[in-house]
């Protein structure tokens, strides 16, 4: 007995150590970025100033004065919020139909949707740029909303489908027997019962939209430019201004990290597809 207890305790300690190492490994770049954002551009590249330097707010003040951080942030919020709303508006009915009225091809459709995520985005870069420019949609928020919604739709539908699957079919059928129409079923039964799952899905979708950089950088110039674009813009044209770049990056990921911190529980549930109860 004692040996068993000891070995499980040792197992627990080694697991905890491992988790800490992985955690620190992931956290270090972020820590470094935040640290660098308080250094002058000169200090930022000197190894002897890695931990010891005179902190400055210069980078942050510069950013709000010269780059109009708030406009980029506003675009990020608008595009991520609307893309998430539309993804749910399409995803909920879609996942509902597939979960409760599966047809012969339902499984294949789900796989096919996921497979679109395997297409390299670069493969459609030229057609997308050409098409959006000729349609006059280039650098519009509308375009970014549609693109963000479309690239996240497969994962949104998959997640919702998994949550809806957990609702016993009889409850939906009881609703039908009780005289509710399809819209009522969704509003009165499905959404309240899957609320936790829907919130997790929405959060994750929002975060993915916020962090998206490939299309938001390439399909915008100014009007629809998001925080990803701001980071990108600070990297390329002006050389190695690491201090400033770090400040911009910190300001870009800041809001989402705070959001993630407050919604940890929902997010873990979302990422594990409800497997952790």
């Amino acid at each position: 007995m004692a040996i068993v207890a000891q070995s499980t305790r040792r197992g627990r300690i080694s697991r905890a150590t491992f988790a800490w190492i992985v955690g620190l490994l992931f956290f270090f770049p972020i820590f470094w970025m935040v640290l660098t954002s308080f250094k002058t551009d000169a200090d930022a590249v000197k190894p002897e100033h890695l931990f010891f330097f005179t902190p400055t707010l210069e980078n942050y003040l510069n950013m709000t004065e010269n780059y109009d951080y708030w406009r980029f942030a506003q675009n990020s919020i608008i595009t991520a919020v609307f893309a998430t709303i539309f993804a749910l508006a399409v995803g909920i009915p879609c996942a509902y139909a597939m979960a409760f009225n599966p047809a012969r091809g339902t499984k294949d459709i789900l796989m096919w949707m996921l497979s679109t995520k395997m297409l390299p985005a670069a493969a459609v870069l030229y057609p997308m740029t050409f098409l959006t420019k000729s349609l006059g949609l280039f650098d519009t928020k509308f375009l970014i909303i549609v693109v963000l919604m479309l690239i996240n739709l497969p994962i949104v539908i998959w997640m919702l489908f998994t949550y809806f699957k957990e609702i016993p079919k009889e409850i939906i059928e009881a609703g039908q027997m009780d005289g509710v129409n399809t819209w009522g079923e969704v509003r009165e039964i499905l959404i309240p019962l899957a609320w936790g799952g829907i919130v997790s899905t929405a959060l994750l979708c929002f975060i993915f939209c916020w962090n998206e950089a490939y299309w938001t950088v390439r399909l915008t110039t100014t009007d629809a430019a998001t925080l990803s674009k701001l980071i990108e813009g600070n990297r390329a044209p002006e050389g190695l201004f690491f201090g400033r770049l770090s400040a911009v990056s910190t300001a870009a990921v800041g809001p989402i990290v705070v959001l993630g911190w407050f919604c940890q529980k929902q997010l873990v549930q979302g990422l594990t597809f409800g497997a952790v109860k």
């Binding site: 016993p168 009889e170 409850i171 059928e173 009881a174 609703g175 039908q176 027997m177 009780d178 005289g179 509710v180 129409n181 009165e188 039964i189 309240p192 019962l193």
Partner: peptide, 27 residues
């Protein structure tokens, strides 16, 4: 099924777990 005017009682009860008894019966 919603327009056939029939009521059904399921083996698993199939109550609406998010509603009170009153709301279940009223549904």
């Amino acid at each position: 099924p919603s327009k056939r005017g029939l009521s059904m009682v399921f083996q698993t009860y199939a109550l609406y777990p998010h509603m009170t008894v009153r709301k279940n019966i009223a549904f």
